[in-house]
């Protein structure tokens, strides 16, 4: 008996993601949960601008593009017109927490009944490894070549903690992809965010700490260890709200 296989909501194609990239994992987990909840025919996803820009080539359900940072504005339009559908956004740290901070905060504050999957890998991947709002202090990127300094570039932005202050936000959890156990916890959190939407609870966000071996300059295995030993210190896991 097959106990672990390819989810139906994920097309059986190779992705463009680098070896060991967390996006592939997160895509798969979302597809698995959608299959398990039986909501594939009701889902409308909003893809970001960033490495996951062509997520709609991998997911086998209705998807919209959004301009960089505008996923939650697009999702607001979709969900308000079709409250019977299940609408989620999938956004990276640059998209959600830099250029789209405004859309993120206000969609959360309106308590839009959507699910948000926020991939935090502390770097801009698609454009070649520049500093992200979530880049750690001292982390080297192509635009912080000496390491991020608080004096010049500010601190890693803790958008989940910020959003947790808003009454419109019903659920925020930070999870990680660095081990099979954490991956299963991530899946559980993704499920919770969808269940909240189905039950009409309101705005739910899952922040997923995700490896970017290519722009961290580490192997896939070392990247997982870096999340576990370094990234989690700045971005502690658990239910934030």
């Amino acid at each position: 008996m097959k106990i672990y296989s390819h989810p139906k909501s994920l097309r059986n194609v190779s992705t463009h993601y680098c070896p060991g990239c967390g996006h592939s994992l997160a895509h798969r987990l979302i597809a698995e949960v959608i299959d398990e909840l039986g909501i594939r025919e009701k889902v409308i996803a909003v893809a970001p601008v960033g490495c996951a820009v062509i997520a709609y080539d991998y997911w086998d359900f209705d998807c919209s593009e959004a301009a960089h940072g505008r996923a939650l504005a697009v999702a607001t339009g979709l969900k308000r017109v079709r409250p019977q559908n299940i609408v989620f956004t999938y956004q990276g740290d640059g998209d959600l927490a830099a250029i789209g901070t405004n859309e993120t905060i206000h969609a959360a504050n309106r308590g839009e009944n959507v699910s948000v999957f926020f991939i935090n890998n502390a770097v801009y991947g698609m454009t070649g490894g520049q500093m992200a709002p979530t880049t750690l202090l001292n982390q080297k990127t192509s635009t912080s070549p000496l390491g991020r300094s608080a004096a010049a570039q500010g601190y890693p932005l803790k958008i989940s903690e910020m959003l947790a202050l808003l009454p419109g936000v019903k659920y925020i959890e930070r999870v990680s992809l660095h081990s099979p156990q954490e991956i299963m916890k991530t899946k559980k959190a993704i499920r919770q965010a969808f269940v909240n939407q189905i039950e009409g609870v309101g705005f739910s966000l899952v922040e997923i700490l995700s490896p970017c071996p290519t722009y961290w300059g580490l192997s896939a295995r070392e990247s997982m260890a870096w999340i576990k030993n370094t990234m989690i210190k700045e971005f502690p896991l658990g239910i934030i709200k």
């Binding site: 919209s64 308000r80 206000h106």
Partner: peptide, 23 residues
Amino acid sequence: VFIQAEAEVAAINMVFGASAAGA
């Protein structure tokens, strides 16, 4: 649906979403 958006940029992108949904 009426939404007073947080910004002009958000408003037009909400229209993008609503139109994509068929409205």
